[in-house]
Write a protein that binds this DNA or RNA. Structure first.
Lengths: 212, 212
DNA sequence: ACGCAACGGAACGGTTGCGTTCCGACGCCG
DNA sequence: CGGCGTCGGAACGCAACCGTTCCGTTGCGT
């Protein structure tokens, strides 16, 4: 159900459409759905609007996916994967900065910044959305960040019995709060100061066993 | 437009309804809208459903508010205000713990935890929702937390030139991330460990002027 | 005792959306 | 060169929702 057909199936066609040259119908639909999702939100997004924006008949959409939900799930799966790379810069502080900068750039993306909170909220009602979001965004990010912390432990920059669970919340939380919830602008040097503060917080982190 | 009429207008009535005894029509509507908002989400919430759940005619709703948006704004304004109290326990650590516990309890409320992210996401498209959310939830919280930090400065627990902006993100972010985004359960002692870590982070906070 | 005002409930017209179906056009593949 | 499959587009039936209007009922204030 969820599979996205390869670009160009058996029956190929030349561009044909007016403006969108050289683009397959499938990718035109997904691109339109992405934009529409950002503008309108999942709940209000209409398939007619997607078809219209993609200069496509609705039949072309339902030939590929069985429903709006199915299409959005496929779209999320395709978009979510490539955004989970974190570089190894050789030091914890460098890795932190790289991660914070990458995340900040991502969360400032005009489309993503609208879609992420929307799908997150909708996920509370449509479990399949929450699932794909967890699998395709949340988990990869968490894994990359865990590797980042593990590298610091191996370098001796962090203690081995560190509370990873809490550390991850410290990495993700403040930046997400500022950019997605509070939505205030970041003053110059904000990311650098955040990195320094997180550095201090991480080395002061109680071990997993600590209870008070 | 937004004003909520006093309980019981000129033409009073006894309960009349079946189950909901002793409850004014207005509060029955708001209660139903709150529940419906949590279940369905703002975009999908229907006025018919609210009326039905409140055992009320739709006319009774539109006699009070002009639209769904108007009603939700009034509802948010009424609910949002009382949740911004933070105690003065005499020490920064005590205040932090009190704040974290209070917030954690609030964000675990089954209705609020559904409504908050939903209205937040919707606020990106309906500015009036974002506005009321900022005025009625965000700003009061921010003010209380600023007072918390200010008290710590006066006690000498934090430096006076602290970067308040960054400090607030550290206070709000991790807990919000865990409870609203990641939505994983909090292991025993989590809040205490978070408080200790934040304590360390706050004293290590660079001053406002610092750039690297 | 009476009238007024708000009540619950049902129905309205108009709009919107979903998912399906049908159409004529067009390109590729054999 | 002829047929097959997909194309864009329009229309369909059906359901839901909005906001309004009307109805007969019910209780409070005078």
């Amino acid at each position: 159900m969820t599979e996205v057909p390869d670009e160009n199936g058996k029956g190929k066609r030349k561009p044909a459409g007016a403006a969108v040259l050289q683009e397959s119908v499938t990718s035109a639909i997904l691109r339109a759905a992405f934009a529409e999702l950002a503008e309108t939100g999942y709940a209000r997004m209409s398939m007619d609007a997607v078809a219209k924006r993609a200069r496509v008949g609705k039949a072309a959409i339902y030939r590929r996916w069985t429903s709006k939900q199915d299409m959005v799930v496929a779209l999320s799966a395709q978009v979510g994967v490539p955004l989970a790379e974190i570089a190894d810069t050789g030091s914890l502080r460098g890795d932190l900065l790289a991660y914070l900068r990458a995340t900040s750039k991502l969360l400032r993306h005009p489309l993503a910044s609208q879609i992420v909170p929307d799908l997150l909220a909708e996920g509370a009602r449509e479990p399949v959305l929450a699932q794909v979001f967890a699998d395709v965004v949340e988990r990869p990010r968490r894994e990359r960040a865990t590797e980042l912390l593990q590298r610091a432990v191996e370098r001796g920059e962090l203690p081995p019995d560190m509370d990873t669970d809490l550390a991850l919340d410290l990495l993700f939380g403040p930046l997400y709060w500022r950019l997605m919830v509070s939505r205030e602008r970041m003053p110059p040097g904000y990311v650098d100061r955040l990195a320094d503060t997180l550095l201090a917080a991480l080395v002061a982190l109680p071990s997993v066993a600590a209870h008070a």
